[in-house]
Design a protein around this nucleic acid. Structure first.
Lengths: 383, 383
DNA sequence: TCACGCATAGAAAGCGCTTTCCATCGCGAG
DNA sequence: CTCGCGATGGAAAGCGCTTTCTATGCGTGA
């Protein structure tokens, strides 16, 4: 079988306890003994049994990161930043296994992964990805998060809004135990309630982007250039991010007394195909748009492609603006005007917060501001 | 504390053994009993302790995926495919926690993660990322992989060549136990050697790309168009992928009797900045290049940017070809001519192989062929 | 010189689960 | 009517590690 602690102990001529102490270096061990143990470990090529350690110590060195899709640059960059921060970047010796989980944007898989991470007794979890506004899912999510917290796991939401305060405590009890009848039920819940208050554990933290402000400044940039007929390819309906960006866009319009024509807004997914389709639809409804703000950079690329097919030049005929400032945006032709979200900073801070390497803000929320990046895809209309 | 198996058992009025059997459904349990247990589980919101299960069952439901950088689309797409295949895609109930680990391209971190995964007793590991040709690292890697295999973990290499056959067995013993002296040493190794032969476990499998063939067809495409002065921005030196692509390129040149001028090849990293710098360098050396083949699509983007700065149009003045056919390549302007690597298929097959859902080929290697994709960035010279 | 305290290391009790025996029950066969 | 067997469920032994509690050996002050 595999080499165990006992084997190492035997080889080094010490007890298992001593080996454990050497490896976890949290107890005084004489130099000579330590050397002997370390040598035995090397000779035997001993690799500790993680599950056993986790069981005994009641905590594992696993930390999780949930993303919608690693293949999407937005999440890729975010995940990369979070991970390098969480796994200690190889610097500190405290090796954590930072793992990223792909939810594929599915709320169910999100819950599943949260449970799986809970099951693994992960030490921390960073949750990114679109937050749906579906109350049922929000409640279920809040309940899961509350349970993770209760188990001592630090949860950090990144790039999404904080969980509704009430839901955290409320949903767990009501939504999750539909079959509360039975003989022991009364006693159990009576015992559980006070405990849950005490066991609340680390409160969930949040690192969010100022989507509203970013969208607003983007549209204002367009308005400042002279655009009045601005199309909007918004993200999927029912996502807070979508709503916030749309609100920012509308706020800018309102500020400048521009009518918000409903037909000029089309919803779609955060991918190129949606942008392509949406742009065609927008053009079908109104041939005279002079600008289009897209849900994000990827969508903007699709919009540009559709525009080109219509024989329209960007930005001479139609200006196009993206969002996120993904890596490829500066290389697009024309280079995309967009709103830069501090993805790397967000990921890093979320990671640090999760690992307790950065003090949590009083209200538990870090709001990161965005920055308008003006490049070549926007210009005055009719130029 | 947390709810344990025993709590559920008590609540359901059965023994812990029964609860375990219900949850792992691998033993006949009467319908009524099962219902009672399931209800208790729901009421108590029981979440099994993964480490404990893993310890008792001597296997965890963790499966790992190693990549260089999730923020890089190449790995993002690959990881996404592997993961959706490994985590059962939500279809089968056998929930695995498929986790992706970012090595950042560092051989050390690669080894570290392998050890960490071993420590967690991962059920399977898919290893992607550039394979260095450094013998020391290759040996160390082979040794780690051998140990994982010995522990029963199925290892699958994806998008990289198979491990050298000899190294797998050889390196473990010689490279890893430098301090073999000591009283118990003789006995231990005597016992270990026969065991390691028996414990060999599942042999590592490989899913590789035909980099050589792809590069060759790409350069031949250029030659067929009439190009003779072809620059080459190769990947980092010391990587097998780099070497294979370069060999393919040179083979094509040789076939058509075109001299392989050393100065026309420049090495760089797999990123945009390298492509940009390399193109400038290439132009400095030879103003009259009519085409450039890049290490991959991302690099090609950088090459295009540099060319543009030189006032050269693509493809009218200089043709540019990429490699990989990443998602953004079709949207580039001009759309990139490139070699499509079946990333998704590779990831999916690697995932299936790792999970034992697909029979392993006799020689343990699956070679996926590439496909030349001709788009707008290549054209006849001087046109 | 002797007791006392400190620095080390060992013994052993679990951590929560899986799984191998066994015990029990109910039933049809002899 | 009794015996044996299949179908269920329980008891208990670990899995490999951490950690408390305890024992030992030594140096030191009185």
């Amino acid at each position: 079988m595999t080499v165990t602690l006992a084997d190492v102990a035997a080889r080094a001529g010490v007890s298992a306890a001593t080996v454990s102490r050497v490896l976890n270096s949290n107890y005084p061990v004489a130099e000579a003994t330590r050397d002997r143990v370390l040598r035995a470990v090397a000779e035997l090529e001993y690799v500790a049994n993680g599950p056993a350690s986790a069981l005994a110590a009641a905590t594992s060195d696993l930390v999780g990161i949930l993303v919608n899709d690693v293949a999407d640059p937005f999440f890729g960059v975010l995940a990369s930043a979070v991970q390098s921060e969480m796994s200690g970047d190889g610097t500190s010796g405290g090796e954590k296994l930072a793992v990223v989980c792909n939810t594929g944007g599915s709320p169910e898989r999100e819950l599943t992964y949260l449970t799986l991470l809970h099951r693994q007794r992960a030490g921390a979890v960073v949750l990114t990805g679109g937050a749906t506004e579906d109350p049922a899912h929000t409640a279920a999510l809040a309940a899961r998060v509350a349970r993770l917290s209760a188990a001592g796991t630090q949860v950090v939401l990144c790039g999404r809004p904080p969980l509704p305060a009430g839901a955290t405590a409320g949903a767990g009890g009501s939504a999750e135990a539909p079959v509360a009848g039975g003989r022991a039920a009364g006693a159990a819940s009576a015992a559980a309630s006070p405990a849950s208050a005490a066991d609340a554990g680390p409160a969930p933290l949040t690192v969010a982007f100022d989507n509203r402000g970013g969208a607003r400044s983007l549209t204002e940039h367009l308005v400042a250039l002279g655009h009045r007929r601005i199309g909007c390819v918004a993200g999927p309906e029912g996502l807070t991010t979508t709503r916030h960006r749309l609100e920012g866009h509308r706020a800018a319009l309102a500020t400048h007394g521009i009518e918000d024509v409903p037909g000029r807004t089309v919803h779609g997914a955060y991918d190129r195909a949606s942008g392509y389709a949406a742009a065609h639809e927008l053009l079908r409804r109104d041939e005279d748009l002079t600008a289009v703000v897209a849900a994000n950079d990827t969508v903007a690329l699709g919009v540009c492609a559709a525009l080109r097919e219509h024989g329209l030049r960007v930005p001479e005929d139609v200006s196009v603006a993206g969002f996120d400032d993904l890596p490829f945006s500066m290389d697009a032709v024309p280079a995309l005007t967009t709103v830069r979200l501090p993805l790397t900073e967000a990921g890093a801070r979320a990671g640090r917060l999760a690992m307790g390497r950065e003090p949590a803000p009083a209200d538990g929320v870090v709001l990161l501001s965005s920055e308008l990046v003006i490049r070549k895809s926007t210009a005055p209309p009719y130029s």
